[in-house]
Simulated scan of single mutants.
Amino acid sequence: MPAPQNVFKAALKAGEPQIGCWIGMADAYAAEIAATAGFDWLLVDGEHAPNDLRSILEQVRVIEGSGSVPVARLPIGETWMIKQYLDAGVQSILVPMVESADQARALVRAVQYPPRGVRGVGSSLARASQFAAIPDYLTTADEEICLLIQVENNAGMAALDEILTVEGVDGVFIGPADLAADMGQLGNAGHPDVEQAVTDGLARIVASGKAAGILTLDPAMQRNCLDLGVTFLATEIDVTLFAKSMRAKAQSGFALLPQQIVTGQAETGNASKYLQQLCKHWSHKGQVEFDVYAGTISFASGNSVKLKATSEALEIEASVSPRGDLDRWKIAITDHLKRFAFREEFELYWNN
């Protein structure tokens, strides 16, 4: 009886695109929900999510019971850690921050038993062998392990061609976020120079015959990657999806409630001047429309102000969202207008 077939590895070898999702909520219940979505593969993240081997194993178990395949990203490519993940029954692993062919060769040795590798022999204790219920595990396990390595900085990209010559590496994943940071574009993975480096790297991986992979939330980039020949593509992250959805639902709920609104006025012969100054001042932070008589300023936070100028006064209507801080918003408007009107005795009276 051999080791279980790794259908994910087989699909990559056959060139069949596999669509996946990043799992970073570090919770088996959340992973089980994700496993009902129908993704080809789900990556349980041990690098940037608050996971340890036990929590990863819990998530791997529930994913294995679905139609999706679990992949685990290690926090670092240490031989002892790789051994533990493999013995726990994780057949597909992603190792971050690979920068050289020598490092890639060491990882290949770490996932293989002697004499080809250095993986410790302890399968009788291991979940991977079903606790010694698979008699041929030791002689068949190597072929079913899928080793994916992550290239995500300038050093790794410079060594990519040599890395791609290493036998035993099943796939290479390009990490745009860290690569962008190393290229001087921290937080800007969509920068044209970064995207060019990423697509160039992916094309080189595909040309080498190895599986190419990436995580990107950009639909246009996803399409481009598939067209390049990428075969393991993650299109979503559970954490960001959950956070985005929760925030949107909170906002839509609050939208059912009335805004907080207050009016005010200031007697001044320079109302038009102050109206225009305030609109210009906040034009780089919010949406602004104005002329010499009226203006509207709106911010993404839900704060807004309408201004009307007459020959004798400046009339104001300030509003915030149902849970916004109206008093703070009134103070901000008042302080700005007083700075503009420092040459006169300016007083803004609020009707509340």
Rank of each mutant, 00 (worst) to 15 (best):
F8G: 07
G15K: 02
E16F: 01
G20L: 11
D27Y: 00
E32G: 01
A34E: 15
A34G: 10
N51P: 03
E58N: 11
Q59M: 04
V71K: 02
A72Y: 11
I76L: 15
T79W: 07
D87S: 03
I93P: 05
V95S: 06
P96G: 05
A104Q: 13
R105K: 15
V111G: 07
Y113P: 12
P114E: 04
P114F: 03
P114S: 03
P115Q: 02
R116D: 14
S123P: 01
F131Q: 06
D136F: 05
T140R: 07
D142C: 09
I145T: 11
A158N: 12
E162D: 15
L164E: 13
T165A: 15
V166N: 09
V166K: 03
E167T: 06
G168T: 06
V172M: 05
I174W: 03
A177E: 11
Q185V: 01
A189I: 08
G190I: 08
D200F: 02
R204I: 09
R204T: 11
R204E: 13
I205V: 15
A212R: 08
A212M: 03
L215P: 03
L215F: 13
D218T: 12
R223W: 04
N224D: 13
C225H: 10
G229A: 14
E236Y: 01
D238E: 14
V239F: 09
A250Q: 13
Q260A: 03
V262K: 06
T263W: 01
Q265A: 14
A266L: 04
G269H: 11
Y274I: 08
L275N: 08
C279L: 00
H281R: 11
W282F: 13
V288N: 05
E289K: 13
D291G: 06
D291T: 09
D291I: 07
Y293V: 12
A294F: 10
T296L: 14
A300D: 14
G302P: 00
S304Q: 13
K308A: 14
E312K: 12
A313F: 00
I316E: 07
E317T: 14
L326H: 00
D327H: 10
W329Y: 08
K330A: 00
I333Y: 02
L337N: 10
L337Y: 10
E344L: 02
E345T: 13
L348E: 10
